[in-house]
Amino acid sequence: MEIIAKGAEANLYLENGVVIKERIRKEYRIPEIDETLRSMRTKREAKLLSLARRAGVPTPVVLDVDTKRKSITMNYIDGEKVKYIVDTLSKEELNRLFSEIGSLAAKLHRSHIIHGDMTTSNMLLSRGRVFFIDFGLGEVNPSLEAKGTDLLVFRKSVRSTHFRREKEILKAFFAGYRSEYPDGEEVIERMKRIERRGRYVSAR
């Protein structure tokens, strides 16, 4: 088995054209917490990958879930992380890409799917289509609070990672989000409120 990536919480193996994502044990946390987190996230991720696809958001197809090994087998998406291509895109390309990402986020939220870790590291661009991956921190939750937090995570990750193109990205993303989600404005307002509650908002 060929290891293709070692992320913070999982190893990815490529075997006969399929990907096996295995959540590895963490020595730093006690076994009770470790076992619960790895089981829960594996199950949730498998479920949410399928739910998301039904909601119209491209995701890898889940082929198998091994709750003992804490692994998910899914089809391999031949693409690049959006994180790595942002700086190579023209203004128009960037606008198109993030407006599409915004509308995909809206599709998730319309179906009450919270991604939980919406960053450009968890989006793959493959033959012109954007795939959402890594739903391990996600949940099904219809509340404005959960959706607002989901958007805040995205906004903050853009702020720290794509600071050079932060404005363009967010503008396109929220335009796409609003266009696909009639209640989108309400979620965006909630996101701002959650951010103001935080400790590190600068005075404005």
Binding site: T149, L152, S160, F163, I194, R197, G198, R199
Partner: peptide, 22 residues
């Protein structure tokens, strides 16, 4: 009063993780 994970990238200490409340 503070909980944050930061790293230097291009002229600033960027905040990669922080508490959303307390």
């Amino acid at each position: 009063g503070n909980t944050q994970v930061t790293a230097y990238v291009e002229g600033r200490y960027r905040v990669f993780g922080e508490t959303l409340d307390i």
